[in-house]
Simulated scan of single mutants.
Amino acid sequence: MPVALLLPLLAITAIGLAQTSLFSQLGLSALPLAIILGTTIGHLPQHQPNSQALLFIKFCQQKLLRLGIISFGFSLSFQQIIAVGWQALLLDIFIILIIFSIGSFIGIKLFKLPRDMAILTSVGSAICGAAAILATEASIKARQQHVTIAVATVVLFGTLAMFSYPIIYQFSGTSEQAFGIYIGSTAHEVAQAVAAGQTISQNAMQTAVVVKLIRVMLLAPFILMLTVILGKLDKTTTNNMSSKTKITIPWFVLGFIVTAGINSYATIPPFVLGTFQLTSQFLLAIAMAALGMQTHWKAIKSAGAKPILLALILFILLLVGGFYLNHILIDS
């Protein structure tokens, strides 16, 4: 089957599977499922892409990904931040900065991992899993193998974290709403926040989703800030100080902010809004399936234990450190 038909088919299959009770209870959204399906197909000998297919795969990973992120803005609104309170926004900002900073330091300085791999793993843990990794990859031009490894480790520990929340809640001694904030501020994926919140209560789930969506919204300014900082670092470390380093502005992130703003202040019919949201999910699922087809177990295995250990450390920091940070900022 031509890859131009195969990738949309994989995306549709992933979206359909995500709606079933089995996968929704596991907290597996369409994006992780799409990369699993793409990886499975990519390991079959009869589906090794030729040069023309590789061009289409690259198109999906870049152009369709950007369109999907822009469309995703229609799933968010600025009013959601106001409704949940400024403390939750501050908490999300702290979580993102702390997890990203510690993860980047450990990955680059201590584990000596490639810079883009450490950054992608840290971003995925700090903000919104695989979607954040793909959005950041488009800005820092990371190597394909490093993107694959970062997605695999974040999906693994994000799923493990989701199953940990009900156990933690039994010993937390916090209210349902407070624990919902904790879930939203530390869960890797939106679907995992939904699944974990449902095990507590409807109130906990709604709160978790709102706080999680605020973290997703912070992806846009974060990428802009990261792009500028990395551009300046690259400029100061170059040997030729007279040369100017071009800072590439990820315009699709600005598009993301614009669509979120439109959704915040314009009255959009529910059918149109649902169409935008479904389109976003479809485009992102295609991009993930394309990434999966480029994913090979040998490449992940060759990276060694350090990327997995980095993701594990961030997983522990989110659950333990995030819990105490929630206690300081929310419960106090």
Rank of each mutant, 00 (worst) to 15 (best):
N239Y: 10
Q177P: 09
T136S: 08
Q198F: 05
L226R: 07
G184K: 00
A191F: 02
I167T: 14
M205Q: 15
Q145Y: 10
I167H: 12
K232P: 11
A196P: 08
A150W: 09
T136Y: 00
V155A: 13
L213T: 05
A196D: 05
K141L: 07
Y169M: 02
Q144N: 11
Q202A: 13
M217E: 03
S185C: 11
M205F: 01
H188G: 02
S164F: 01
M162T: 12
V155M: 13
Y182W: 08
V210M: 07
P166D: 04
I223K: 06
V210H: 00
V211W: 05
K235A: 14
I200W: 10
V210L: 06
S175N: 01
T159M: 11
V190A: 13
V209C: 08
T199E: 10
Y182H: 02
A193N: 07
E189I: 04
V190P: 02
T236S: 14
S243E: 15
L224C: 03
I181F: 09
Q177M: 14
F222D: 00
S185H: 01
A135L: 01
T207W: 00
I140N: 02
I214N: 09
M162W: 06
K235S: 14
A204E: 10
M225T: 14
S164T: 14
T159S: 15
L213R: 03
V216L: 03
